[in-house]
Amino acid sequence: MTEVNPEILERIKKGETDLFREVVDTYKDRAYSLAVKILKNREEAEDALQESFLRLFRAVTSGNYESRAKFSTYFYTIVYNTAVDYYRKYYSRVFNVSSIEVHEANYSDGDELTRNFEPMIDRTAYDADSLSAERTLEAAEIQRIIRGYINSIPQQYSVILNMFFVNELSHDEISGILKLPLGTVKNRIFRAKEKLKEILFREFRKEELMEYLKV
């Protein structure tokens, strides 16, 4: 996991503010992914992210950020709260990450994870001459399915998945930021992965997937 060197934060606090660019470049894309998942709008997400970085800058320079806290967790908490504030402002409704009740017992049932998603496989794309071209197309197809699936799932899942896979936060950290029980966080990640696996196995044979992994 990429963490900013605490020495850099200390130097920013002492007045070397140009070094803040290093912090921005380290976190901007991953934090932006999180803001987009919450706001579902790129422009608003960028505004929220800019506001988050300004809040972070003020916290670092004023000494409000204590280096005892893990920096990435601290920053992603700011991003989450800022994006949720923007969500309330723009959509005039509460962003409720816990609105979907998850029961482990029925995770495999047809549920909200696949409600808005139907994978469309373009089999004509497999009429390629060479094996490597076929594999590349297959890989692209798999990636397209995964992306379509990610875009179709509710925010209550995509935010957690983003925090786990992109922001590289632990289950505990996610649970702390979202104020959700640890079990719920683990369960949602598990369910989302299981559903994706199910979709991929429905569209591809296991051998095809293994071939993709060799590319």
Binding site: R21, R42, E46, L49, I142, I150, F165, L200, L213
Partner: peptide
Amino acid sequence: ELIDTGMSVSLREKTGAGFS
């Protein structure tokens, strides 16, 4: 691994040019 990598890649977004 395929699922984890696929998720990680698909979830990523990029800020616009000149954001920094």
